[in-house]
Design a binder for these strands. Structure first.
Lengths: 187, 187
DNA sequence: ACTTTCTTTTGACAATTGTCAAAAAAGGAA
DNA sequence: TTCCTTTTTTGACAATTGTCAAAAGAAAGT
């Protein structure tokens, strides 16, 4: 749980009371490779902090699995659309490596928000940082070639190649696996 | 200012005290077509609510203007990266039609957050809704063809064609103006 | 009306990327 | 090891999209 505390502190320091309340509300989740945290059609009621392992979010489009994010150590994980809107999502969250997470339900989190303004601020700030990341990714997707997107990924997350199959990375980059394979062979 | 109040209420109702404090902190901004709200290289210190008019955010890439969002009535407008990170951004915000806005500085907003938990919750919720929109846009960009993206835009915002030059829409969709023109002629 | 400027369309061609199919390589399990 | 499965690479070809250049059309100002 220290990992989470350290991670949180980098975003926004919270009072010891808020941390105490938060840590009481957290559940430890150990989940093995290839299992699913979320399936399409269900409402994702929990927010997770990933301490160890990795996961991916994907959905099915015309019979193909389309990966649109990966989660690694120190990331917050949820089916964002579903968690926020309280509606069923189209997203599947699959565990790619045996993972350790800390989870909190939406209800518990909102109760904590009422009691600790601190925590709501923390979440606001984290949301904002994740928004900025998403914005950067959109810009790359909109205005860069497949090769540039790949090279950018290699710079920011070189470890990803060692942990994720190529086909899933290609999907994440918005290109076919064959194209990614060819890009790599030409570098 | 009623427009803003109604808009806010749809996201999260706030106490009358919070609204009173907020409305006192707002400045009315009238800004004419073709002027700039934000220029690249500057820190954007303000968040705006657009009551009337429209704007676009763009940046320069290899001598080309790359449009990555449009703002219309009832949208919140800022150079998000710069506003959040307090750093200079690469974004230009240009006024496309004579516009009326309500603006608040970052400092004033954060002071209001300290005094009114309400308002911070409101902003958290608005952020989350904007995050979801951005996520949808990323998904479209990642996994849909140019034609599909255009058709989707026509469904969700048909008015955009009447108000925005084609070249800017093409840029927003991540395609060349010529391609968009051809897509339209083939429908 | 007539310019002037900005916007949109069209043509020709090149570059990028996708699809399908098969082969090669890598990784796991017995 | 050998077998089996999954992952990655390669080839051939098609589809999509981009680029450059020019023409046509629309809008704004005089």
């Amino acid at each position: 749980m220290n990992t989470l505390y350290n991670c949180i502190s980098q975003y926004h320091p919270i009072s010891s009371g808020a941390w105490e309340a938060l840590s009481k509300a957290l559940t430890r989740v150990e989940i093995p490779r290839n299992s699913f945290l979320v399936r399409e059609g269900m409402i994702c009621n929990k927010l997770y902090f990933l301490e160890r392992g990795c996961l991916r979010g994907y959905y099915n489009l015309d019979g193909k699995e389309v990966t649109y994010w990966f989660g690694f150590e120190n990331n917050f994980i949820t089916s964002f659309y579903s968690f926020i809107s309280r509606k069923p999502g189209i997203e599947n969250i699959q565990v790619l490596e045996d993972s350790t997470m800390w989870g909190i339900s939406s209800e518990a989190l909102h109760q904590l928000f009422d009691q600790h303004h601190d925590l709501e601020r923390l979440v606001r700030i984290i949301n904002e940082q994740y928004y900025i990341r998403l914005e950067e990714r959109l810009m790359a997707m909109q205005f860069k070639t497949a090769r540039e997107r790949y090279e950018q990924l290699m710079e920011t997350s070189p470890h990803i190649l060692q942990r994720i199959p190529l086909g899933q990375i290609a999907s994440y980059l918005g290109i076919s696996q064959e194209t990614l394979s060819r890009i790599r062979s030409q570098v």
